[in-house]
């Protein structure tokens, strides 16, 4: 036992994703939940709360602004398929292209 940092996540509305709300120090996960309610939910801001010991969180190593592949992967983005416009032209169907 000892005081540890917990990260707090909350769900604001039905179907919403859990969002990081802040962090707190507590002696046990049970107390962390109780305190999270008090620190972040006094005005009923959230309908659900999670607390996670910060130690349990792993961080992706980061160099630069974004994570992800260094080389562009055009095939993963819609913008990588602009050539279809030209290909529709062969069939006289430019107006059928989904933009």
């Amino acid at each position: 036992m000892g005081v540890a940092v917990f990260e707090v996540f909350g769900q604001e509305g039905p179907g919403a994703a859990m969002r990081h709300a802040g962090s707190l120090c507590a002696a046990t996960p049970e107390l962390a939940i109780l305190l999270a309610e008090e620190l972040f939910c006094r005005r009923s801001e959230y309908r659900a709360l999670w607390v996670v010991p910060r130690d349990a969180i792993s961080r992706a190593p980061q160099e630069g602004d974004v994570l992800g592949p260094a080389e562009p992967r055009g095939y993963r983005l819609g913008a990588g398929y602009r050539a279809t416009v030209g290909k529709w032209r062969r069939f006289g169907g430019e107006q059928l292209v989904d933009r």
Partner: peptide, 11 residues
């Protein structure tokens, strides 16, 4: 005794 607890006990 703890800042967090101050908030909780005030509730």
């Amino acid at each position: 005794p703890l800042i967090e607890e101050d908030v909780a006990f005030a509730s």
